[in-house]
Design a protein around this nucleic acid. Structure first.
Lengths: 236, 236
DNA sequence: AAATGACCAAATAGTCTCATCCAGTCAAAC
DNA sequence: GTTTGACTGGATGAGACTATTTGGTCATTT
């Protein structure tokens, strides 16, 4: 019953198909959870045969990894799009983007309803949220321009803790008390600002440099994420 | 084989016994987890007969609830003992005390290794950490004395998020990056300070009033917690 | 009155068998 | 060369039954 296909080998077409498959995975995983999402379901929903999926990824897990990488790219691109100009804006937008991506939220909070048996492997999953060494470079730049205190504090940990706390504490609060996602993002930004900034207003030149450094950092991050995603989608 | 006992009815002795039993529960639960800790184990370790435990609590769960209430009393008393004089010191000490009480940490982080099937019921468990309405009164006092900003921010949520983030993010970080408990407590204090204080130094009179309000708040909290604990230990 | 521990029902853990499911393969269709 | 979907086998789950454990009771002892 196989209807064939042999449009010679259009890489663009293949890529589009990979994305269609990932769309299906995302939808099904969010609806039914990872454990209950079968390759057959995915194939049906994406309108391809099961074997086709294995032309893209060697295993089910690799397919899912690709989905997460794509989520990361989309999230970081969304942050970049908002053009944050300071550290606090950066993390406010980071929080906002994260809140808007249920799959990433599920991974970060190890939501076993959605991730099923995947939620054990915290090691790999959380690596999604490692900001990478370019963050250190970025922070060094901020310090140089007097945009943040130069405490011996571990910036990464401080900022991560703040984001993490705001994102997940509300789940344990009385339902009425839960602020909107936008409000949470704003609170993250404010808290990061107050905690890490020097308080002194920045000279225009420095502010400009900081804004550029922020965008540079994001560009780098997005690009790295995109490269990883590309590897997950093609060749493999 | 029952060796009797009938020292008319010494309430102090009974109380001491209740505590001995809770000591046993605490030790066993931390070592083996809630699911694997049996009433027989507890009785053996506490040196009483199984039936005796049921003279104190109607069910296993009530016994465990009593243990948690006692933990809360001990924790809040530890905070009170350090005599924090500001909001940020208060929460720094709160974090420090929490970090020093593995059982409360387990409850707050819903650690299923330790809590077993108990970790489902987040509702009740997390209520341990509701600060209560006296906190609102306390914050109002702080605002009045100019010790904190009067943003429309939900103070409770802001502060809780910060504490929560610092306490639990480190679990997901590379092991080497994890700061000591003391360092975490300090970071909590600093972050709360920077986030919620006005920045202006306080007149001595106000500082004094704030310090007193802080201790008052703690006294109230400890007393309420003690009253709840007392109910859990005797009558029932 | 106070404390005990033998006792019991109910829950849980273990065992074996049989049915179902589904990730991954590959010969066939285009 | 590219795509397909029937096929397979290892894993997973359902079912039925037995063995063990354990929360909670209460007649008995002091």
């Amino acid at each position: 019953m196989a209807r064939a296909g042999r449009p010679p080998q259009d890489p663009a077409r293949q890529l589009e198909r990979a994305h269609r498959i990932l769309d299906a995975v995302a939808e099904l995983v969010l609806r039914w959870g990872y454990d209950k999402t079968t390759i057959d379901d995915v194939a049906r929903r994406a309108g391809v045969a099961k074997g086709t999926i294995y032309l893209h990824w060697k295993t089910r897990d690799e397919m899912f990894a690709a989905l997460l990488r794509r989520e990361r790219v989309l999230m970081m691109a969304a942050v970049r799009e908002r053009e944050p100009a300071t550290l606090s804006e950066l993390f406010g937008e980071y929080a906002r983007a994260l809140l808007g991506r249920p799959l990433l939220r599920a991974v970060l909070s190890a939501d076993s309803e959605i991730l099923g048996k995947l939620s054990r492997r915290k090691k790999e999953s959380t690596s999604q949220f490692q900001l990478g060494e370019s963050f250190d470079t970025y922070v060094a730049e901020l310090v140089k321009h007097g945009a943040v205190r130069d405490d011996p504090d571990d910036y990464l940990m401080v900022v991560s803790s703040i984001v993490y706390g705001y994102l997940f504490l509300p789940d344990g609060l009385p339902p009425g008390a839960k602020p909107s996602d936008d409000r949470i993002a704003d609170l993250v930004a404010v808290t990061v600002e107050r905690t890490l900034s020097t308080g002194r207003p920045l000279p225009a030149a420095d502010a400009e440099a900081v804004a550029r450094a922020t965008l540079d950092f994001l560009d780098t991050t997005v690009e790295i994420a995109q490269r990883k995603l590309a590897l997950s989608l093609e060749g493999k």
